[in-house]
Design a protein around this nucleic acid. Structure first.
Lengths: 194, 194
DNA sequence: GCCAACTCACTATATCGATAGCTAGTTTGT
DNA sequence: ACAAACTAGCTATCGATATAGTGAGTTGGC
């Protein structure tokens, strides 16, 4: 259900086609809400039917056309309403913690291998988050740049600072995961040694 | 797909009925993997059909019977195989971060209200995690107690330590969320003041 | 003796989400 | 002239989840 709000969030920056969205999704909103294009296209259609978006047929090449989606006033109002509505707390559902709780069923070597994999995943993820954060700070991030173009200085400041704030949260979370993984190595060594 | 591994994990502790499971789920595995009973019952049936579990009809009262599920050797082998298989990294999908990135669309008062709600949710969640961790340390946690009964001292030590490790991770995560929320308050005050 | 609360085991329905594949036009390189 | 890669917009299918209900037996309190 949050997918539609992620889509409106993106489209408030600038009008886009479904294809544009599925591309820029991976470099921006996907860090907080991932979705494949097979979900994006039908959802855009639904949102248009419900009046949250309108679409404009834009020529593409000689014969082709593409559909550019714009947020309607109604869509913006619905987005603001969602923004101010209470958040439903997320249930925990993380296989990594489930596995960790039952590491005694696995071979210590297999546990170390798992931890190595997780560490490299989170290290990469953290590096990517930090690169993106830097591109927000210097305002070179394409999606953000398009968004703040039409805003005044104060509005732009707000938009940028809150995006950085979101990334700071994601970065803190990644660091916490990495620290936990390192504790895992220490624990395996201790329990395997005795 | 992890649901079945969560169920086997629980059932390795002691045989249980679907009802037992749905009850003890909320006080143990649910912290890492939540599921409602409407998912648990069909999944237990499927797992029995696939040979991962067997069930024994146990009398209940005068007329009633209940179905107690036991993990088969095949089920245990499948569980170990999963434990040692690589972990598929989870996609980020968290409405809290999505909202935070677009707080500039909401009223500062509404943002503060959101943050208050999230803080009280995480505070409660953290307190619950710490209570559970304490009950693991002193081995009073019922599910854990049932599990370690049939284990030798060394095996019990492993089981307990890894469960504590999992909770330490969850607790660290909760603390990170709380710190992030507090940063949110500071940021709103700063941006609203100017 | 009876009602409430609890135990037990589901079903029904709908939506969400992931993977895979399809069709057709466009641009670019050789 | 033709192929490869890219842009565009889907569909089909399957499994995972969530919400809500059904119905029957049991236990405990007054």
């Amino acid at each position: 259900m949050s997918l539609r709000w992620a889509l409106i969030a993106l489209l408030t920056g600038r009008p886009m086609t479904g294809y544009d969205i599925s591309k820029s999704f991976s470099t921006s909103v996907a860090h907080v809400w991932h979705a494949p294009d097979s979900q994006i296209y039908p959802e855009l259609n639904r949102m248009e039917r419900e009046g949250l978006l309108t679409s404009v047929e834009v020529p593409w090449g000689k014969k082709g056309t593409k559909k550019e989606y714009h947020v309607t006033d109604e869509g913006l109002a619905a987005f603001r309403a969602w923004m101010e509505s209470p958040l439903v707390p997320q249930r925990q559902r993380d296989p990594a913690y489930l596995k960790a709780a039952y590491f005694d069923f696995a071979d210590p070597a297999a546990v170390r291998e798992q931890l190595r994999q997780q560490r490299s995943y989170w290290e990469e993820h953290l590096a990517m988050l930090e690169r993106t954060r830097a591109s927000l700070v210097d305002r070179s991030h394409p999606t953000l740049a398009a968004r703040i173009e039409k805003l005044n200085q104060r509005e732009a400041e707000l938009a940028v600072r809150y995006k950085i704030y979101a990334y700071d949260g994601l970065i803190a979370r990644a660091r916490t995961e990495l620290a936990w993984i390192d504790d895992g190595f220490t624990l395996v060594d201790e329990l395997d040694g005795c």
